[in-house]
């Protein structure tokens, strides 16, 4: 166990070297968000005061985007998949085959340290942002909702990480994985609720999305926080989310095992 703490520690130190990069990313990332909020505000004003979009009032819509940004900061994989793919392509994983350290746990530790650093750096702009919008910002529906929200956020992070890990395993077979990563990311971006709340979609489309893992990669915890998912739906949703995490974990393990058989240690 101790060796993994070391990995986390080193990961944090490594990431801190790029703190300016993280800060730039966090600040630039807020700009399109602000732009989207302006567009929503114009839409609400055009529709008349007190109007709703789906079940959302304007303050709820603003809260939705702020929450999405926060959960995203806590859970998004940003460079891990590229790094894993590069490790495989350049033959760097050879050393992990020889050492008593498991590559998946090793990467998970690095992912965690990356998130810790990112959150530490991004907290300042994010908090300023939340304070700026405090008139609109909602508190969680209730204590249970908040607890489940935290649990679900952790599951979201794991689901995102295992999915990206499994995806990066493609590097065993193809030279250039970035296109595949971007294709998956495009689906995640729209179907996980990044661009707009999923429940303003036509009902059938929203229902269909729930058969994919995408809503559980971002939208689900936010819907818990806002009290849109509660009671039996909440319990069932958490179970399904857990099931997706386990499925993604096994997929990642399976892909790794098949990949290793294919692996020829280029340059290692």
């Amino acid at each position: 166990m101790r060796k993994y703490w070391h990995v986390i520690n080193i990961g944090i130190q490594n990431n801190l070297t790029y703190r300016f990069n993280f800060l730039a990313r966090a600040i630039f990332g807020l700009v399109p968000l602000v732009a989207i909020l302006y567009v929503w505000k114009a839409i609400y004003e055009g529709n008349g005061s007190g109007s709703r979009v789906g079940t959302y009032s304007l303050p709820e819509m603003v809260s939705y985007y702020v929450l999405i940004t926060m959960v995203d900061a806590l859970t998004a994989v940003n460079e891990d998949d590229w790094q894993i793919a590069a490790d495989i392509k350049d033959g760097n994983i050879s050393q992990f085959l020889l050492k008593p350290i498991d590559y998946l746990w090793y990467r998970l530790c690095l992912f965690l340290s990356g998130r810790v650093t990112y959150v530490a750096v991004a907290t300042i702009p994010l908090c300023l942002f939340a304070v700026y919008l405090h008139r609109y910002f909602m508190l969680p529906a209730n204590g249970t909702a908040f607890g489940c929200f935290l649990l679900s956020t952790v599951l979201t992070a794991l689901l995102q990480f295992f999915t990206s890990y499994a995806m990066a395993m493609l590097a065993f077979w193809v030279l250039e994985v970035s296109t595949f990563i971007f294709i998956l990311y495009a689906f995640e971006y729209v179907a996980s609720g990044h661009l707009f709340p999923l429940d303003i979609l036509p009902r059938w489309l929203e229902q269909a999305l729930y058969f994919t893992p995408f809503p559980y990669q971002l939208y689900f915890p936010v819907s818990i926080y806002m009290g849109k998912t509660s009671g039996p739906d909440l319990a069932r949703g958490l179970l399904i989310q857990g099931a997706w995490v386990i499925a993604a974990y096994f997929l990642a393990r399976f892909a790794w095992r098949r990949g290793i058989r294919h692996y020829s240690a280029v340059g290692g």
Binding site: Y18, N21, R25, F28, G29, V31, P32, A35, V39
Partner: peptide, 16 residues
């Protein structure tokens, strides 16, 4: 990272 960050700003250009 900064350069890719700027790429985010392109999003604004497509909004009315």
């Amino acid at each position: 990272g900064i350069v890719w960050g700027y790429y985010n700003l392109f999003n604004i250009a497509r909004m009315p």
